[in-house]
Structure formats: C-alpha cells, structure tokens
Design a protein around this nucleic acid. Structure first.
Lengths: 340, 340
DNA sequence: TTGAAAGCGTTACCAC
DNA sequence: GTGGTAACGCTTTCAA
C-alpha cells in the first residue's frame, strides 16, 4: 500500500503539498497539483483512514446498538432502518457499526465501550424508554447522538419521532365511525415511551365520542406475535369482547389475528383489527392488515442527517421532529358494522 | 481523554512500561504493574483504538454489505444473521460495519472503498452468486473473507453453506411419501448458487421415485412474496396443476399460499406447500408453513469464527463447512393424500 | 526490569 | 507556493 510519502517522492514534492492537494487545504500551483494527482493515480494511492482519524480525532463511524429489550431482533423494522442509516451515512462518507446486546447489562457495557474507546463519533438511539439509561449516559458523557423517539422526562436531546397520539386517535376514530363501540387496545411494552402516546390517543378518541373508558379493554401486550396472541386471548375471554382492536404494532396485530382465527372467529367480521408500523408482513397475511404506517427509511435518513449536522457543528434547523403516521386501510379493519 | 503519557507520568514510569502492562508484552515487576494499574484506574484511561490500529495495521472491524441483489432488505434473514455476526465478533473484540448498496455498481464501489481505505480487516459475504464479482475481487485483492454460500466455479475460499440438495430432496421425498405425484418447484433467483443445489435436490427426489420430470412444474420465482404469488399463479394456470409445491424460500411460499387462497383453493388440501429458511413468518401465517430450517444464527457465528481464525493466522480446521437443514413439518404440507 | 526513541500515515503550523 | 517538521497515541526495538 503506497503512503503519502511515496506519492510525495514520485511527484517530487513534500508530503505537505500532497496533503494540500488532496484536501484542498493550501495554495498549490496548477502544475504541482497536476503532478501530485498524476502520482496519486499512478500509485493508486488512497489515504489511510486510520492515520487521518488519529490526527483528526474522529472515526467517521456511527454507532447503532440493537437491543432485544425494546424490539425483537426479528422485527423487520431493523432492516429498513439500518438500510436507511447505512445509506444516508454513506452519503457523508460515514459508516455505521451495528452491535447487538443480549440484556441491559451488556447494553450498558456496549455503549460505554464504544464511547470510551472512541470507536464511533456519534450514536443513533432507537425506541426511547421511560427511564432510559442510554440517554442519561450519553448526555452525561456529552456524547453526540440523535434518537428515534421522544424523551419521557425532562431530558433534552435531538430526536425524530412519530406522532403516535394523533395516529392512534385517528385509527380509533375510524373504527368508531364504522360503528364500533367496544374497542380493545393491545399495548406495547410498558417501558417504551411511545406506548404512552398511543394509549393517550386511544383514550382521547373514546372521550371525544363520549364512549366509556373500559379498563378491561386495555390489555398488556408486549412486542411479538406471541404477545399479541396472548393478549387477544384475554380480550376474547371477556364476557363482552371488543368488536374491534387497536394493536401496539403489526406483529402483535398478526398474533391477535391468529388468536381470533384459532377460535373460529373471523377478521374483520367478528373483530376488526388495526396494527401499527406497516411492516411487509401486513400484506402477506389474509386478511391483509390495516395499519398506521411509519416510514422507517425516512426516519433513519432524518436521524442521520441531524447527527451529521451535530457532528459538523452545523446549525440544526429542527432539533425535535415529529412525523405523522399514515392510516392505511386494508382488509382487517372491515366495513361499516351497520349497513344502511 | 487521558493518554498513555498521562498514565506514565502519574505512575512514574515510561510509556513503554504502561504498554507492557496493558498488553502483557514485557516483563514488569509486580510493584510497577500495580502502580501502572492504579494510575490507569485513577485516570479512567482507555487506550485509543485508532492509535493502536495505526501501529498494528488492523481496524478490528469486519465488513458486511447488504445487497438487494440477492436478498430483499426486508428479508428477516438479515436480522438473525447480523445479530450473530455482531455478537460473535464482539466476543473477539471486533465490530461489524454494515453497509447497504442499491445496485451492482454501488456494491462494487463499496467493496473497493472498504478494502482500499482499509476500513475493515475482513469481509463476510452472504449468498454467493453464479458469477460473483465480490468473490473475484476479494480473492484478487488478497483480502480475507468467509462466505455464507459455496462457489459456483473453481474459486477456492472458506465458506459455510447449507446443504440445499439434501434438504430439498428430503422435503420432496416427504411430499412423495404423502402420495403427491405432481410436485411443483418455485425457484430462487437464477443468479444464486444455492438455487442450483435446490433444483438438483428436487430432481433427484423425483428420479429416485421414478416420477417424470415435467418442466412446466418448475417455474422461475425470485425472492419476494410477490415473486412467489406470481409463480404460483403460473402453476395454478396449468391444465394439470401440481398438488404440492416446494418453494425456494419462505417468503415465496407465503406468496404462493396467498395465491392459492385468493383462487378459493385451500392449503394443504388442494396444494401442499413447503418453504425454505424457517423465518418467524412461517408460524404467523395460517396454515403455518412447513419448511427447511437453516439456522442463520449458527451460520453467522461459524462464519465469524472462521474469519477470526483467518485473521489471526490460526489453522482453520475446516475451511468448507456444509450444514444440514432440518425439515420442519407444520400445517401447510398436510397429511397423506390417500387415507387408508 | 525499565526506558528512550523510532515509527505508523496523516495534517497543519511556521518558515522560507 | 512550497517544504520541514512536530504532533496525534500507541507499540516495539534496542540499549541500559
């Protein structure tokens, strides 16, 4: 591998001049520039990222830690999100280091290691939590990051989030307009900040329509298909089961769908269903799943752009971005209950 | 951030001694060692990965490039595989840089950049192709990598692969044993090496049972649910459609399932179905999908272990590993056609 | 058992 | 416009 010295020698200039040419960081005569460029070409020289980093104090790496804590690794969310991160970062000549963790302890250690080893210049944090150690740690360490998800407390940091409140409210309103009066809610994991907003959206929709808030219609779910299956089972066991259900995410909605089918009932005739996320799975199942779409690619792209601005000391025009999800009506939400 | 010099100063030793202690690379008296360790502790010192890399000529990074060319980004395969890569690498103090590419040209550029910039010490390559530029390039460049998938030609490199031939043969035999005589095959993308082996397994099973090889029963598929849907449509359009179908992967099997349902037919009564991969989706659909399981986590782990051995100049005990897939019978493959 | 110093490949300050 | 050289933080050779 040729180094800058080899280039300098071949072009009969100093290494400083080579550096000037390559980085446009000094005045160089056209003739010299041409000679340097020719030498670079001839040698196939590429500057060493590592040496550059040692000088420049940055790694051109972004960190993203996969945690089973808030999302299952099989959640297709990651595919789109990671692709967006990697794509967008590449546009800035950055790369993304993806790490996985098994539990909270190893997650803690991972962040600490990445920060203290200065392996990455900044982090992308997904799925903010109620009492989020990661956020607290990074803020305390003064380490740059941008989150997908809002804070639950008074912490201040840049983020992109989806408006779960408005989204769920709109979806539940849609079900109410269809004629549904008993609408169930299968909640996400209690530690997730977004669970809160979605719940509030659900309650707001009922209140605005003067529908009673029946606590037995709100069941703890979780994250996975199994969680949704189990939660739906509880709802179906009620003396008066709901005729429609809003699920915390698509995976649980599909679980709910299976629970309904396995009891010989039908979606949407016996129970209408709406999910959240719009993962590809929604169109694979029958009936296809109505849902609230969050554009993970868009979110990932925005998050990286904000982080790049942060790292380059640029002015962040918007530091907290809230995106509206789109209600996507497919088959599982059914038609009007009472035909006229 | 404290440097090695700060530690040396505080411990009243030279930087060399600090380095000896930290790397166990020189004889150090117990007293000195203790003093150094105390200083490290007090300062919260962590060696700079970058400076280390500059000396040592390695980055402690592994590269993995996501390509839509052979697998759709929404393929859940990636989740498990990437998690396995990241987990296993972490055990060796390595990290994984994940990059995405949009097309073959950008893929080519990505590999070139990563290699020439020496951003990573080695690559993991997934889904080998018939005429695989990536492999050719890395071999020509003498750059270390381990593949998930076999070569299609005479190239020699370390890999882990799943025995698609035996797997599919076994699955088709299973269908034959159930009484099926007309068995369809929905193929993977033609460029994938594994398509070949699976096709051969299909043909072998038919031949061993003296069943005719009907070319109209073999249809081009692809990768996605849509591909499977379309391919199944073609099979159902036949004058004499198959009573069972082996799909190139689970995603296409689910697409086939939907195609069958959408024509008012039933799985497995009208058409029995077996997929390949065992992604979580197989248990979310109704009927649940029979499939050949490949353990992506295991594969990812093995690939990284082999790559680590390669990078550390250790003897590779096995350089080409073939794993057997497991036939998993769920509902979609049905029971015996002719009940006795 | 310890340390001085060279060197890894850059960048950038300061002279010329 | 150009070049010499120190510096980035570490490892390692060589000498003491």
């Amino acid at each position: 591998m040729p180094t800058i010295k080899d280039v300098a020698r071949l072009a009969n200039v100093s290494t400083a001049t080579v550096s000037y040419v390559l980085n446009n960081s000094g005045p160089v005569s056209e003739a010299t520039r041409a000679r340097v460029l020719a030498a670079v070409e001839e040698l196939g020289y590429r500057p060493s990222i590592i040496a550059r980093s040692l000088k420049g104090k940055h790694t051109h790496m972004l960190g993203f830690v996969l945690s089973p804590y808030a999302r299952q690794p099989q959640d297709p969310f990651f595919n789109e999100f990671i692709a967006a991160l990697a794509d967008t970062a590449a546009g800035f000549n950055y790369h993304v280091a993806v790490t996985t963790t098994a539990d909270l302890a190893s997650e803690r250690k991972t962040y600490k290691d990445m920060v203290e080893d200065r392996r990455v210049d900044g982090f992308i944090i997904a799925d903010t939590r109620l009492d989020d150690e990661r956020l607290a740690y990074l803020i305390a360490a003064g380490f740059p990051f941008v989150a997908f998800g809002r804070p639950a407390n008074e912490l201040i940091f840049p983020y992109v989030d989806v408006d779960g409140y408005t989204g769920v409210k709109q979806a539940v309103q849609y079900l109410i307009d269809l004629g549904h009066r008993r609408i169930g809610l299968i909640e996400l994991s209690p530690t997730l900040v977004c669970r809160m907003h979605r719940r509030q959206g659900y309650e707001a929709a009922l209140q605005e329509n003067d529908l009673p808030l029946d606590s037995e219609l709100i069941v703890a779910g979780g994250l996975t298909e199994e969680d949704g299956y189990r939660a739906m089972g509880k709802l179906l066991d009620l003396v008066q089961p709901p005729t429609a259900v809003m699920a915390g995410n698509d995976l649980m909605a599909v679980g709910a769908m299976n629970a309904i089918h396995d009891r010989g009932l039908s979606v949407p005739d016996d129970v209408a269903l709406i999910g959240f996320d719009d993962i590809p799975l929604t169109t694979y199942v029958r009936p296809t799943l109505s849902t609230l779409r969050q554009d993970f690619y868009d979110i990932g792209e925005r998050v990286v752009r904000m982080l790049m601005a942060l790292l380059h000391d640029e002015e962040l025009t918007e530091t907290q971005v809230i995106l509206e999800p789109t209600l996507i009506i497919r088959e599982s939400s059914g038609g009007a209950l009472i035909k006229d």
